[in-house]
Every structure is written in structure tokens, then in C-alpha cells.
Simulated scan of single mutants.
Amino acid sequence: MKLRFLGKNSTPGDSPTLYATDQDSYVVQGWRIYAQDLLMQLDVPEGQTAVEVPIELFEHLAKDGLASGEIKRFEAPIMICTENGTCIVQGPMMRDAEALSQMRLPDYEDCIEVPRSSITALLEDSSGPDHPRPA
């Protein structure tokens, strides 16, 4: 799998990162979750994991030809939005050796692969008078 770097919202050595793949998916690299209060809210099946990233990371989707990277729907694969402006994203653990070799993945980070359609669905506004957008 080939990766194309879209962007990161971090400082050197602290690197949540977003990549597009040649497999019609995105790779989301983020911080491993150690906070028990967050872990208790998740149901992570075998073969999946969850990572924490700044919500602004998705603004880099515009570099993949999407009109905007503004998240308008907070549903799977985004599982939790935190008070700190981050979100917990869950999906299949990245196991592709070629893709992993293209990344710098510190010990305290992990990455997941998410279908492009799952991410682009989050950019569509489904709110209306009966469906307010979460704060």
C-alpha cells in the first residue's frame, strides 16, 4: 500500500498524521489511548484499535480534493469527542508492512486504516431542526 502524506497538526516528535492511500482509504496516525475513562467508553473488537487525534487533523482532507475537512457528523469511525478538542477514531489496525515502512511511528502512537467513504460521510451535514450537531 502506498501512502500520500496529507498533513499533521502537531509539533516535532508529537505527530498525529493523516495519509491517503492507493486503496481508497485513509490512514489515521494518532496517540494510543491510556486514559481509563476513555477506554471504558469504547468497545474495540479484535483486530481494531483506537487513536486520539486533534479534530483539526481532518482539515487536511481538503488536500485530497475534498471541498473541506470540516467534520459535520460525529459518528463511527469517530467514537468520542473530548473536551480538549480531540477525537477518538476507531478502526482496523494498520498491518500493511509497506505502509508502515513509510511512516515514523513512535512507541506511544498507533495507526488505523479507515475507508474513504467512512471519512467523507462525516463531512456531510445531516443536521436539521431535529438533529442538532454536537458541541
Rank of each mutant, 00 (worst) to 15 (best):
Gly69Tyr: 01
Pro106Lys: 09
Leu105Phe: 15
Arg116Phe: 08
His60Ala: 13
Cys87Phe: 00
Ile119Ser: 01
Met94Ser: 09
Ile119Gly: 03
Met40Ile: 06
Ala67Gly: 05
Asn84Ile: 00
Leu6Ala: 05
Pro45Val: 04
Gln29Pro: 03
Thr120Leu: 00
Pro129Thr: 11
Asp43Trp: 08
Arg133Gln: 12
Asp107Val: 11
Leu123Glu: 12
Asn84Met: 00
Arg32Gln: 15
Val89Pro: 02
Gln23Tyr: 10
Asp43Leu: 03
Leu57Lys: 03
Thr17Trp: 09
Pro129Arg: 10
Glu59Gly: 05
Ser68Cys: 10
Leu3Arg: 07
Asp96Gly: 04
Ser126Val: 09
Asp22Gly: 08
Asp64Val: 12
Thr82Glu: 06
Pro12Trp: 11
Ser15Tyr: 13
Tyr26Met: 09
Glu113Met: 13
Val89Met: 10
Asp96Met: 04
Asp37Glu: 11
Pro16Met: 06
Asp96Ser: 12
Asp24Met: 05
Val44Phe: 10
Pro12Tyr: 11
Thr86Ile: 00
Glu98Val: 05
Ser68Glu: 09
Pro134Cys: 06
Asp43Met: 03
Gly128Tyr: 15
Pro54Gln: 02
Ala20Ile: 06
Glu56Asp: 10
Gly7Cys: 11
Ala62Tyr: 01
Arg104Glu: 12
Ser118Gln: 15
Thr21Ser: 09
Ser117Phe: 14
Gly85Phe: 07
Val53Pro: 01
Asp64Pro: 11
His131Phe: 03
Asp14Met: 15
Lys2Phe: 10
Tyr26Thr: 08
Asp125Glu: 08
Gln48Arg: 13
Ala62His: 08
Pro134Trp: 00
His131Asn: 11
Tyr108Ile: 04
Ile80His: 00
Val44Tyr: 08
Asp107Leu: 11
Lys8Trp: 14
Pro129Ser: 13
Arg95Leu: 12
Pro115Ser: 09
Glu52Phe: 00
Pro77Asp: 03
Gln48Tyr: 13
Thr21Gln: 11
Ile71Gln: 01
Asp107Tyr: 08
Tyr19Gly: 10
Gly7Gln: 14
Ser25Gly: 10
Thr17Lys: 09
Leu3Pro: 01
Pro45Arg: 15
Gln48Glu: 15
Ala97Ile: 11
Pro106Thr: 00
Gln36Glu: 12
Gly91Ile: 12
Ile33Thr: 04
Ser15Gln: 13
Thr49Glu: 13
Phe74Asn: 00
His131Gly: 08
Ser25Lys: 01
Trp31Val: 05
Val27Trp: 04
